[in-house]
């Protein structure tokens, strides 16, 4: 059984999707990730989709779900490395990914997560964002 590895960097979890995901794998990732957030007390989740050639509505929904769940578990989610073609297609497809924060690459993503975690500590700032 394929499994997508989840790496821990500090209080951040890093998931790099390197394979063409089928739906069950996506659902499993969702489960694994939420569990890992709880056990590792992580504050941020970064999902690297630079290897994904397509993101269809199912994967989109999965990304949205992960973001929503980690938020409930007090963690922020950033999706990084989306290819331009995928981005265009997502928009054309009508998927907004409204609950998901994105960053261009892993560096920028880590930066964003730091920033977000810091912000979280001040709830008022969060509202302004």
């Amino acid at each position: 059984m394929d499994q997508i590895p989840i790496l821990k960097i500090g209080d951040c979890l890093l998931v790099s999707i390197q394979v063409d995901m089928h739906d069950r794998l996506a659902l499993q990732l969702q489960d694994d990730l939420t569990n890992k957030i709880v056990t590792s007390r992580a504050r941020g989740v970064m999902i690297d989709i630079s290897a994904l050639e397509i993101v269809d509505s199912f994967i989109g929904r999965m990304l949205n779900n992960i973001a929503a769940m980690s938020k409930v578990l007090d963690a922020v989610t950033v999706v990084v490395g989306m290819r331009p073609a995928v981005a265009i297609t997502l928009v054309e497809l009508g998927l907004a990914l409204t609950g998901v924060r994105t960053a261009l690459n892993v560096d920028k993503g880590l930066e964003l997560i730091r920033h977000l975690i810091d912000d979280e500590q001040d709830p008022d700032d969060r509202r302004e964002e």
Partner: peptide, 16 residues
């Protein structure tokens, strides 16, 4: 490559 992604995404939706 853009169209490849478009077509593939559409297929992915419909096949699912």
């Amino acid at each position: 490559s853009q169209d490849q992604t478009r077509i593939t995404t559409a297929v992915s939706e419909i096949v699912r």
